[in-house]
Design a protein around this nucleic acid. Structure first.
Lengths: 205, 205
DNA sequence: GGTAGAATACCTACTGGACGGTATGCGGCC
DNA sequence: GGCCGCATACCGTCCAGTAGGTATTCTACC
């Protein structure tokens, strides 16, 4: 077990370094050498754990699903949960290198096509599920197309995150999320439900 | 003039081929050889017109500003103009290789940082200007933060376009734009103005 | 209106370097 | 002493960019 622990540590170091470099440079511009340097690992070690650059990238992308899997709904109303999820994700984007790298690789379509689709679908499905629960609770406007709304919200979060990254290195991401909800919620939820929601971030005390 | 005509033709051929390759592969993964092949031009010709790969990419990015510059407002209400602009842009993304390549390079931050910021700002400014006119016309809800709304709309369009590209190669982009406006407009414009807007695409007869 | 010569526009062949990936060797824990 | 986990050295490929020559077209003068 002890020697497996060492192996796991280097594997994690490689994964973290790869996520950072992929986040900063993108897949094609990222070089194995830089990943090696940053991980403090040699080529042999890396290629022992990952058979190719692409396999390494896929492992980084996995980090996104892992984050979403560990996320716990905030037990409130479904719409509030969706809002909170957005903020939690925003903070992960600001702080968690693995999530950052994963998102950049997801957004950068090209070399590998399948996992990106899965990632987008994953987010859209989560949003859709929450919206369904909200509709069943009578919180939404009657005519709302759930699939369409889920798609728009997923896409909008993607784009807002991107523009925030380009313009302010994600410093104003939280504010932009609040702006999004302010603009979108009136078209989604009924006034009585809107009154119970907190659009701004609810900091866990 | 005649010599300029020939030169201009090869320059355009290079620009078009570059936009296509950048669109398909991204900046780093795009190779000059592929651009040369597709343009049917030799290296010497290309490097006569563009001094480096980066300069070529910048020229492609310019295409976006050029498109926006040639665009003519549809003389309606400001909000309707904004909606129409979205659809016009969507069609350009589906059909115009230069716009496609330009957008991909804009979204792909990294190597060159300045022009992307300018591009985002350009779109945001246009949206902001139209929203200001809409507010002055009394179409918007009183408390709307114009800058925030413009930023959200710009970002949302960016993201929707991206997810549509990844999921369906932009085939459902028009539909997603309609979904966006359906969701966003109620939080933006007052009911009396909303009634006069056509959210779905207005095909010019 | 024909021609010299000067730009302009383009072509071919090449280079140095970096990149992803591999072959092989070796130390240390079981 | 065997195998897991890594280290080192190396390889073939490909890439952006350049050097230097050649063709094409414009300008100017007769």
């Amino acid at each position: 077990m002890a020697r497996q622990a060492r192996a796991l540590a280097t594997r994690q170091a490689v994964l973290l370094a790869a996520a950072e470099v992929f986040d900063e440079r993108g897949y094609a511009a990222a070089t194995m050498s830089e990943i090696l340097d940053r991980a403090g690992v040699t080529k042999g070690a890396l290629y022992f754990h990952f058979r190719s650059k692409e396999e390494l990238a896929l492992a980084v992308i996995e980090g996104q699903g892992a984050w979403l899997a560990t996320w716990q709904p905030s037990s409130d109303s479904p719409v509030q949960t969706l809002i909170d999820l957005g903020y939690a994700f925003a903070h992960a984007l600001q702080d968690d290198p693995l999530v950052r790298g994963s998102i950049r690789l997801t957004i950068e379509h090209g070399s590998f096509t399948q996992p990106q689709i899965a990632a987008y679908q994953g987010w859209s499905d989560v949003a859709r599920g929450l919206l369904e629960r909200a509709r069943d609770a009578g919180d939404l406007h009657p005519g709302v197309d759930l699939a369409a709304a889920a798609g728009v919200i997923t896409g909008a979060v993607t784009g807002i995150q991107l523009s925030s990254q380009v313009l302010t290195d994600r410093r104003d991401l939280i504010q932009r999320m609040a702006d999004l909800w302010t603009l979108v919620l009136p078209g989604l939820v009924q006034p009585h439900a809107l009154a119970r929601l907190s659009v701004a971030e609810r900091v866990p005390s």
